[in-house]
Design a protein around this nucleic acid. Structure first.
Lengths: 334, 334
DNA sequence: GTGAAAGCGCTAACAA
DNA sequence: TTGTTAGCGCTTTCAC
């Protein structure tokens, strides 16, 4: 194995000089830098990660804990992971993969053994055993999502309130005057003070602002519930011309149900969904949608961590703006 | 930070004794072991990963390179990754995540810097820039899939030939006497001497063995091609009662096409697919299928690496047996 | 602008 | 069965 002293000898300098050329932590004459770089190339030198971590107290590794539980949409997780790895590499860091299964112990382990300098935790629950740990751990961390008590933690997420508002805005601008929200299952609203509520709030506020008649309907995540919901909505609001859906499994069945009930989409009824792009794009009728911006979330999580590692303070909450992709399911009211 | 000397002092032993208690590399009296363990607990000691890697020349980290390119079915990748992490943890190892994008350089980097002890590479292409590197690198590796020249490399994959055979066997046992294979796009057969051929071979051999009439039809991966294929098959073989599909995007469209042509599935025509379980299970009509056993592949890849790390030789090729899941698309011929 | 040398925390050879 | 100690390869302080 080629080591720093080999490079130093080859270049006719001290090992510390090689180290400084690599780190840029002190000024080196152009001449020496050149020679050292050439020696590094010539010998194919790569610093030993462990030795580096030991001496510098930095592993240059981020730990990323991903959920594997059902209900999480897998492509979104992968997209997020890929974005994290790519962003980390751009900052000379590597990524250690942990599964949610490992829980708080896993985080404690990689932090305690100095395997990782910082932690990214996806799929944060409102009451999460990892939260208290992350507080006491003296390693920077970023959470994807917001727990019940986010104070002092750095959290990143889609701005769900803005997403709810944006869905209404899109429909209002198409001329719709009556829009209902088909939401998540009832227990999601009861149990969590989380994103489902925020979508509903943004939806309701924006509807009020646009003078659009609106209502929110929690809905179980089954095709049968979707069918029943479609019938109920038509019975309740004959004047309904647009629907926002925030409930992934229900998107396709709901559209199918409306069609079976004799409504044409988008001619008679426009549909906007909050769901992963894969679901919206691959539906029989491509659905206008607002997606979780997994790429941006991953990249942002990493840049936040990098700031924290440098000691630069960052804001606790980062809410990414929603983006709406117009597909075939929404059209002007007529 | 608690270090090994703190534990040693607390337990009244030498640091090396603590090390040996942890590694089990020499016999320790039950009494000492007990005291040391208690001190470890009491102080919350965790060995410094970098120091360990430096002194022992082992990082206890596996690098896992995953594909993100389109065409790869994402849930399968995630499932594989999860299995690798879980298996690695069972062997006291962690997993470093690399993206295919990093290519050979990424592997060289993590191997050269001693970040990882061993490498797992998924989605191996027939002509892959990483293959020559893996040969010359003095780190054990396992490939998922088979390159053109697999000699000397440790490869793991589904036994595609057996999968082809199994699909026929299932249908033959249901009484079908005429079975066609709708395969991958033509260029896959031309370009690759890989899994597509092996499926076709296993299919053809098994058909011959069961005395079943059969034919192989490459098929483009589009709904239109699926529709055309359905028409063509019916025209060619009016007596056809079963079809095997090895072409993910075509599974659902093909079934739909047969139905539109007046055939009932499975009453008039049985269908078996080689595709990820998600696709088979979530089709409008759940499809009897043989899946890529991502869990087993991941676990096996890790155990193979562990053997290699211990210096135990392993066989070059590991072919996992196919498993067929019976769903609603296959039934006895009548 | 550069060098010398003291550790970082652990493992494993050697010694008892 | 246990202790002593010499590194592992790097970073960083101190010195010039």
């Amino acid at each position: 194995m080629v080591k720093i002293s080999d490079v130093a000898r080859h270049a006719g300098v001290a090992p510390s000089t090689v180290s400084y050329v690599l780190s840029g932590k002190r000024t080196i004459s152009e001449d020496t830098r050149q020679r050292v770089q050439e020696s590094i190339e010539a010998l194919g030198y790569r610093p030993h990660a462990g030795a580096r971590a030991l001496a510098s107290n930095r592993s240059n590794v981020l730990a990323l804990m991903l959920p594997l539980r059902p209900g999480i949409h897998v492509p979104v997780v992968m997209q997020f992971a890929a974005a994290v790895v790519t962003a980390a590499r751009a900052h000379e860091h590597d990524v250690l993969l942990l599964t949610q299964e490992e829980g708080a112990d896993g985080l404690r382990r990689v932090a305690g053994s100095a395997l990782a300098d910082a932690l990214i935790v996806m799929d944060v629950q409102l009451r999460d055993e990892r939260i208290p740990l992350l507080r006491e751990l003296n390693r920077p961390s970023v959470l994807l999502g917001f727990p019940a008590e986010p104070d002092g933690l750095t959290c990143v997420d889609l701005d769900f309130r803005a997403a709810g508002a944006l869905s209404v805005r899109h429909l209002a601008e198409l001329g719709h005057r009556c829009v209902d929200l088909v939401g998540s299952p009832p227990e999601v609203y009861e149990r969590e003070t989380g994103f489902a509520q925020r979508v509903a709030e943004g939806f309701a506020e924006s509807a009020a602002a646009y003078g659009v008649a609106s209502a929110v309907h929690p809905c179980e995540a089954t095709p049968e519930a979707a069918r029943a919901m479609a019938e109920r909505l038509l019975a309740l609001h004959p004047e309904l011309t647009a629907v926002v859906v925030h409930n992934e499994p229900v998107v396709a069945p709901l559209v199918a149900a409306f069609r079976e009930l004799g409504l044409r989409v988008p001619e008679d009824l426009s549909v906007v969904a909050l769901c992963p792009d894969e679901i919206a794009a691959q539906a029989p009728l491509p659905i206008t949608s607002i997606a979780i911006p997994a790429d941006e979330l991953g990249a942002r999580a990493v840049t936040l961590l990098m700031s924290k590692l440098k000691g630069v303070p960052v804001s606790d909450a980062t809410l990414l703006p929603p983006r709406l992709t117009i597909r075939a399911s929404s059209a002007p009211r007529h």
